[in-house]
Design a protein around this nucleic acid. Structure first.
Lengths: 203, 203, 203, 203
DNA sequence: TATGAATGAGGCTTCATTCAT
DNA sequence: TATGAATGAAGCCTCATTCAT
């Protein structure tokens, strides 16, 4: 009796979860608000009870998730560990996020991060925040002599993040096969590629 | 008399060029067909004489440009030069393309390549073709012992292309400063980062 | 304890008073039921405990006030005084009403009396009642030889009431300045204009 | 052949005329844009080809008509005739307008002039212009000694216009009977009432 | 080839009202 | 009495596309 009722927060969550599925399936622009409501099993208007607009639903999904990442980046930066490991932590976090909730990640990548011209513009500052956090990690690595100094930290951050996002995109659109093993292996490959470089070493 | 008339092909070109400016400025979804016509200084319906639909205008812009890149990748792959130089050739081509026609490149990146859910889907095979071409170059590099073998060629291609696209996106949305010097320097940085790796070397 | 509780009637009054402020500020159609509730500091649904609908709130405001006027008109008609004074009594009542509660009068004029296509229709009979009351006063004036007989009483009533309402409207929309003095002066001017006429008299 | 085609201007007119009928019948807020299109026998979107919005249709109807009235007021003011005749000219113009096109006048009065809180606000300045024109006529009458000086010209203008509008409203809502004869008689009655006054004169 | 008037489907949002607690 | 979550109908506007000339 006590637990049989859905609270307001749960209903809100219900709608957000439904939105993830619908956005992932049909795309943000292609889906209608009624699709979200139907998927959530609630009335049309209820979406507008909890969110100001269709945009705000996506906003919420993005911000909730993205803030976790920027927080992680900040956290990792403060830790006492080799820069390589820091970058691996970030890679792990992102790839694990995809493993745990590929639909949500698809939405964030496809509809926000990579849709820079429409929705991305709105969140450019938040996105930039993550890039800057990564750049700071690189910078600290350079100060500690772990990272070469002839590549600017900002450029390095872009290359690193760009590589990660491209891999995610490959998985999303099935250009590369995805699975537990692939995800795990990719963590190593990203760090090996970006930190170690593609060149074959004589040593 | 003979030269005062614009030929059909020229009119078509006029519309395509106008479309680039309008798509770059307003985005594909935000602009109307009439905006293209206005920008081109032609009548509304004429766009439909030369193109089946608004989509086809963007399709044309993308294909015309993208085919040049896949052609270049094929061409470069066949040349007898170090893999590093091959990758640099590709990087050069892309960054020079942006330098010469930033609006067109913006449209292709923002509206097609990174709009994977809408136009990207349509052109997925063509886009994949470029990735595969790059992967082949990496593979040949591995065969020749220039590229390490513990990173799969497809993964390496993604990291490489992802880094490039992320840099382009940074320029487009002014997350990184752009200019002649930056573009030139970026060619080196991409290759240094991806091939050389970010690690500081003792040697 | 006994006095700290608001009675039902008081709550109802609270809502009505809030409605006046909200209707006056935003207009009946532009405001939402929740605006009224917010203004009254009560819960959304409570408005529906005391009123069947949003319409009924306005209906109530109108009827409560308008009935006072028709009552006054009846009352005045029965008094033994010159017709001019009767008309002045009515003018006084209306202008004083505006002075005492300009927001309520604004609502009644703007949202009911002058909104003939929506609420006016509903209350047409009640509104007509007032016109007829005034017409009767004119008629009695004609019978007593105080009012010229070549203007029909109904027409005279319309001219009289129309002039009053136009002055009210002018105040409401600040086409004419309003204040204590202006309100007082207007009472005389209305009667002088309508009864005395605008013509300059030689006498 | 030459006359069988409807020109663009005629189509626009077609829509405006249909709008008058629909607005008069259902009221501006109650009718849908599709009602206008249906009444005009054109496609939904065509209304938006000729007008920016539903509002603009009403705007156009109002402005086209109202400008005629302000023009007339200006014109009449410049003529060399007794003030009484000037006011009669204005009254004639308005009542004739109603006689010729009662639906259009109903729309203007009910949906704009008297709907001061919604649409009226938009046109307040234009409406005010007419009042001021009438006030100027009264003022000139006062200067020439034809109109009493103890009633301000602005107040007199309000009383005069208010009386007219109230009569129109009475006809519109059938509070007073309307016909050729009534309209003609009303012209005299308005002037007699406002200029002559309701008082019975001993002379 | 060229024009631009004409078409009409589609979707977001608002908000009065109901109802379970 | 009191609350506010839940419902869902209704309508304006956009704009890609067609078509008659």
């Amino acid at each position: 009796m006590a637990t049989s009722k859905t609270t307001a927060a749960e209903k809100r969550r219900l709608i957000l979860d439904a939105a993830v599925r619908v956005f992932a399936r049909q795309g943000f622009h292609t889906c209608r608000v009624s699709d979200i409501a139907d998927e959530a099993g609630v009335a049309y208007g209820l979406v507008y009870h909890y969110f100001r607009s269709k945009d705000e639903v996506l906003d919420t999904l993005f911000r909730d998730r993205w803030s976790l990442m920027t927080a992680l980046i900040e956290d990792v930066d403060g830790r006492d560990m080799p820069t390589r490991d820091k970058l691996r932590q970030i890679t792990s976090f992102i790839f694990d996020s995809y493993r745990h909730d590929p639909e949500l990640m698809k939405v964030i990548i496809v509809e926000v991060t990579r849709a820079a011209n429409s929705f991305g513009q709105t969140h450019l500052q938040e996105i930039r925040g993550a890039y800057e956090g990564i750049a700071r990690i690189v910078e600290h690595g350079q100060e500690r002599g772990e990272i070469r100094g002839d590549v600017t930290s900002q450029f390095a951050a872009m290359a690193f993040y760009g590589a990660i996002e491209q891999v995610l995109t490959s998985w999303i659109f099935e250009l590369l096969p995805f699975g537990e093993a692939e995800a795990e292996q990719a963590k190593t490959l990203i760090v090996e590629t970006i930190c170690g470089g593609l060149d074959a070493r004589s040593a």
